[in-house]
């Protein structure tokens, strides 16, 4: 260790305070470096839906759908995997990384710096947007190029995709922040976060046909946002004739917007009320 000089003594008079946009960009970059250097995150959040779609496509060769308009399994499960990927990248990544960063003192350390809290959260959201878009791009490319799935060509469908993606990611992110306070420790975090999410995926029509579930389970699933996100994505990636296979016989776009927005608002309120920079046992 050697000696250090102080910065200019008159600096306090005219601090060149770094701008919020610059800090948010730096946070996003740091979050992305952390995400892609963490092997677990890449495998279980980023590659998981892609691998699963590939396995489904290879394991099941039968056709699904209404008579005369049947599609390949890969095509049928593509919307489910897109919805699942959004849930993993937004909800799971947020809940896990926050629980771990709270436990290991990263959050506490950041709280002791001039970093504006909003820049921390915007950096997380920036990371999730980049990872989410990259994941869906890879997922769609694999589906279209390797598994022979058809991607929509009409602009209207892509518009539906866009608002489903934004609402799904936004609500998943804030719910992930809110849920990050539930695990008691970083050790229990992956079980507490991943377990319920897997169950939710099963009952939300991500892994198999939603209408195959008993109606009481369908009702349970209808409370949570993932079922609605998957339904929205089905309306994007499946032919029009599949609309009649939905429980209500309709894609219910209005209801999807309503329910995802409601979860977004509930999540925001819970975040603001319960967010902690420190561990539960830390004063």
């Amino acid at each position: 260790m050697s000696t250090l000089t102080r910065t200019a003594p008159d600096r306090r008079a005219t601090p060149s305070r770094p701008g919020l946009a610059r800090i948010v960009l730096a946070r996003t970059r740091l979050e992305l470096m952390t995400f892609f250097r963490e092997r677990d995150a890449v495998i279980f959040s980023f590659l998981f839906p892609i691998a699963l779609l590939g396995i489904f496509a290879m394991a099941f060769s039968e056709q699904v759908g209404p008579d005369g308009n049947q599609v390949d399994f890969a095509q049928y499960f593509l919307p489910g995997m897109v919805a699942s990927g959004i849930a993993l990248v937004s909800f799971q990544t947020m809940a896990l990384t926050l629980a771990i960063e709270r436990e290991d003192g990263t959050l506490k350390r950041l709280r002791g710096t001039p970093l504006p809290p909003v820049a921390y959260f915007l950096g997380k959201i920036g990371m999730i947007l980049v990872v989410g878009v990259a994941q869906i791009a890879v997922l769609l490319a694999v589906a279209a190029l390797l598994l022979g799935a058809d991607l929509p060509t009409e602009a209207g469908k892509w518009l539906t995709f866009a608002w489903c993606y934004v609402l799904g990611t936004a609500s998943g992110t804030v719910l992930g922040i809110a849920f990050s306070s539930v695990p008691k420790s970083a050790k229990s975090a992956s079980a507490v976060v991943v377990g319920p999410l897997i169950i939710l995926q099963f009952i939300s029509g991500v892994f198999f046909v939603f209408t195959d579930l008993p109606s009481w389970l369908q009702n349970v699933a209808s409370v949570f946002p993932l079922k609605w996100l998957a339904q929205g994505m089905r309306s994007v990636f499946l032919p029009e004739q599949f609309e009649s296979l939905e429980v209500s016989g309709s894609w219910q776009h209005g209801l999807i917007v309503l329910i995802l927005s409601a979860w977004l608002i509930v999540g925001l309120v819970v975040c603001v009320r319960t967010f902690r920079w420190k561990r539960r046992d830390d004063g």
Binding site: R12, P15, R17, L30, M33, T34, R37, E38, I100, E101, D104, G105, T106, K108, R109, G112, T113, P114
Partner: peptide, 16 residues
């Protein structure tokens, strides 16, 4: 900006 804090134990930022 005018205070510096070195906490008792800190980990995190493992991959950086």
């Amino acid at each position: 900006e005018r205070i510096g804090i070195v906490l008792q134990s800190s980990t995190g930022h493992d991959e950086i």
